[in-house]
């Protein structure tokens, strides 16, 4: 298996960046000393992966019709208490999506999410999830979440942890209510897809 990610791995824990970096160095030294036993030592944490996914979702989606004006920043917003920490900022730094500079915004309130293209709803928002989704409805933002009932409640993409890998499921019904079109490439690697791709309307 390649690129395995595990919380149980002694080399990994979710901490601040400097601490993580220091641990990475230690792990690297260990690896040098013990050979290839810790080949996956340099693997990123679960939230690093999720942060990267949030950016990459942006690269596999587009906005049909007049959904979003071209130009301007591509905003990745984190609603609620941020579990991703600085890895999101690091990953998004100097990145572009369709030629638009990526900005990371942290929202305290779902109403601020109107200008976002991707909204990650923190697990800490679970109690207010339904309200948040309702507010974001019609804002042409791709909603991404962690909670197990995220799709049932009207979210679009839900992270799933499967065999130590971060995967995701898609609710196309929710997506189709917006002008967002998800690439078939993205759907191909999804764990599961609810609803059928709307080939006509939104495009």
């Amino acid at each position: 298996m390649v690129s395995a990610i595990s919380n149980a791995d002694p080399c990994f824990a979710r901490r601040g960046l400097i601490y993580a970096w220091a641990r990475w160095m230690v792990a690297a030294w260990l690896c040098l000393l013990t050979g290839s036993a810790c080949a996956q030592a340099a693997k990123p944490s679960e939230y690093d992966v999720k942060a990267a996914y949030l950016l990459n979702f942006g690269k596999f989606m587009r906005f049909a019709g007049s959904g979003q004006a071209a130009g301007g920043a591509f905003n990745i917003c984190i609603l609620g208490r941020d579990p991703l920490g600085r890895s999101m900022d690091q990953i998004a730094a100097n990145e572009t999506v369709d030629g638009r500079a990526v900005h990371v915004q942290r929202l305290g309130d779902a109403t601020q999410g109107r200008s976002c293209q991707v909204v990650y709803i923190s697990p800490f928002e679970a109690p207010r999830l339904r309200e948040d989704l309702a507010i974001l409805e019609g804002s042409n933002a791709l909603t991404v979440g962690d909670t197990p009932d995220f799709l049932e409640r009207g979210g679009m993409i839900q992270f799933v942890l499967q065999a130590d890998h971060v995967r995701f499921s898609v609710n196309l019904n929710a997506v189709d209510r917006t002008h967002i079109v998800l690439s078939s490439e993205l759907l191909r690697v999804a764990v599961s897809v609810e609803g059928k791709p709307n080939r006509g309307g939104a495009r």
């Binding site: 298996m1 990267a52 996914y53 990459n56 490439e185 191909r188 690697v189």
Partner: peptide
């Protein structure tokens, strides 16, 4: 080109 999403989203099977 067909492997981009699989790489990006860590889908070895795909």
């Amino acid at each position: 080109a067909n492997s981009v999403s699989a790489i990006v989203f860590d889908d070895q099977q795909a």
